[in-house]
Amino acid sequence: MQFGVYGLKPEEKVFFDAWAQNNGVTMNYHTAGLNGQSPADFAGDDAIVALQTVPYPPAAIEAMAAAGVKYMALRNVGMDNVPFPTLAAKGIQLANVPAYSPQSIAEFAVSLTLQLVRNFGYVIQAISAHQYTEAMQRTGKELGTMTIGVIGTGRIGASAVKLFKGFGSKVIAYDPYPNPALKDEVEYVDDLADLWPRVDVIDLHIPGTKENTHLIGAAEIAQMKDGVYIVNTARGNLIDTQALLAGLASDKVAGAGIDTFEFESDVFPQWEKNEEPTNALYEQLLADPRVIMTPHIAYHTETAVENMVEVSLGNAKAFVETGHAPNEVDVQKLAQA
Score class of each variant (00 low, 15 high):
Ile206Phe: 04
Ala43Glu: 14
His324Phe: 01
Glu107Met: 03
Met146Phe: 04
Asp259Gly: 09
Phe268Ala: 08
Ala287Gln: 12
Met27Arg: 15
His130Ile: 07
Asp41Glu: 05
Asn307Ser: 14
Thr113Ile: 09
Gln336Cys: 00
Val150Pro: 01
Trp19Val: 11
Ala109His: 03
Ile92Lys: 01
Ser312Gln: 12
Asp226Trp: 03
Leu248Val: 11
Pro326Gln: 12
Leu286His: 11
Asp46Gln: 14
Ala181Lys: 11
Glu310Arg: 13
Pro57Asn: 09
Thr213Gln: 06
Thr53Pro: 11
Pro269Glu: 06
Phe15Ile: 15
Glu185Met: 04
Ile221Gln: 15
Leu313Trp: 00
Pro85Met: 08
Pro180Cys: 13
Lys162Ala: 00
Glu134Lys: 13
Gln93Val: 13
Lys317Gln: 13
Lys165Asn: 08
Tyr132Trp: 15
Ile156Ala: 03
Arg75Trp: 07
Leu334Val: 05
Phe108Ala: 12
Asp251Arg: 10
Asn35Ser: 13
Ile156Met: 11
Lys225Tyr: 09
Gln2Ser: 12
Leu94Arg: 10
Gly68Arg: 09
Gly144Ser: 04
Val77Met: 09
Tyr229Trp: 10
Val186Arg: 01
Ala59Trp: 02
Val150Ala: 03
Val201Gly: 01
Tyr56Thr: 13
Ile216Glu: 04
Gln103Leu: 13
Lys317Leu: 14
Pro277Tyr: 02
Leu195Asn: 11
Ser128Lys: 10
Ile151Met: 00
Leu244Phe: 05
Pro178Glu: 07
Asn76Phe: 09
